[in-house]
Simulated scan of single mutants.
Amino acid sequence: MDFGNSLALSLSFLFLLAHLSHSAIQLPGWLGDKNTQESVLRLNKGAFTAPFDPTRVTPLSWHPRAFVYKKFLTDAECDHLINLARDKLELSMVADNDSGKSIKSEVRTSSGMFLQKAQDEIVAGIEARIAAWTFLPVENGESMQILHYEHGQKYEPHFDFFHDKVNQEMGGHRVATVLMYLSDVGKGGETVFPNSERKMSRSNEDGWSDCAEQGYAVKPRKGDALLFFSLHPDATTDNKSLHGSCPVIEGEKWSATKWIHVRSFDKPSKHENNGNCVDENDNCPIWAKNGECEKNRVYMVGSEDSYGYCRKSCKVCSS
């Protein structure tokens, strides 16, 4: 699935979720009738997994686009992911803006490790559910990263899209992030968006840390998942997606992150293999004919930071 189509589907579906979360509409055969206690839409993979229930999704912000899914994971799934990672943690790294290499930094002081894709039935089931929620294919996702924050540990505000071209060579920019909270936190550990349009908006709930006051914040609650987009629908980077993990003040924080790219992260694209002048979508000739080379230039042709997907049809390269 290409980025243009998959992102459009994601946005359409999320608008549906936003509507469902504030209405009493039932979808027969999917969400069940009034006597059904939970969604009947279940995924085949994964033991003791939660059903996929779009009525649990609430939109938080449109700039950046952010949504929270209450109890996306079961307690058993959370505990399982922690147990897979507990004895394999290493100091977390960050990507160097120039070289793209992973380096140590005081900006990020947690510890973590990466699971393998579909490492077991539980992990595969969670990955499938993420794909169902985001409408972005499983192959566009990186391996899930499990993170552990102890007292005082944090991740300073940063972007999930890349500033270097090295990291963009595999799968392009990260378009979306699904952040799953695996534990409750006594105090602190919030996810904060300093540039959010809702920066001055705050719930009446007590217990926010000083760090959370710097922007719109989401409290870590075991089983909840936060989805936010790092790119606009036209594939340009969204500076309002700046986000950070506030220092843990009481207790500890466990989380799981799934980064999702604009195209497959499992294999390089055609133009990355040999530099040929190609289209990466069968619809490119039609889109070009309809003027998308100018209307949606970043996606179709590319920019300094990203390679276009319809360069042949837009006639900006030679076959």
Rank of each mutant, 00 (worst) to 15 (best):
G308K: 00
V192C: 07
V107A: 15
P64D: 09
C211R: 01
P194E: 00
A217L: 06
A66D: 04
G188P: 05
A128W: 00
K165T: 15
A176I: 04
S230C: 08
K240G: 03
D282V: 00
Q37N: 10
G223V: 01
E156N: 02
R297F: 03
A85T: 03
S319A: 08
V262E: 06
D160I: 06
G223I: 01
T49V: 12
R56N: 13
G112C: 11
A212M: 10
F161V: 04
D238I: 01
W62A: 08
Y299W: 15
H151P: 09
L20S: 10
E150Q: 13
I249G: 07
K154L: 13
H232R: 12
E304Y: 05
E294G: 09
F114M: 08
L17H: 14
C314A: 07
R311Q: 08
A235R: 14
T191D: 03
Y307I: 14
T36Q: 12
S313P: 04
D279E: 00
C211N: 06
E205Q: 14
L242V: 02
V248C: 07
M113A: 05
N44D: 11
G275V: 12
F114Y: 14
N290R: 12
V185E: 04
V68M: 15
I286N: 13
R263C: 06
E280A: 03
N296C: 11
L226D: 00
F15C: 07
S241K: 02
L136T: 00
D206A: 05
F114V: 02
S245A: 15
S143V: 03
H151V: 13
M93R: 15
S230P: 10
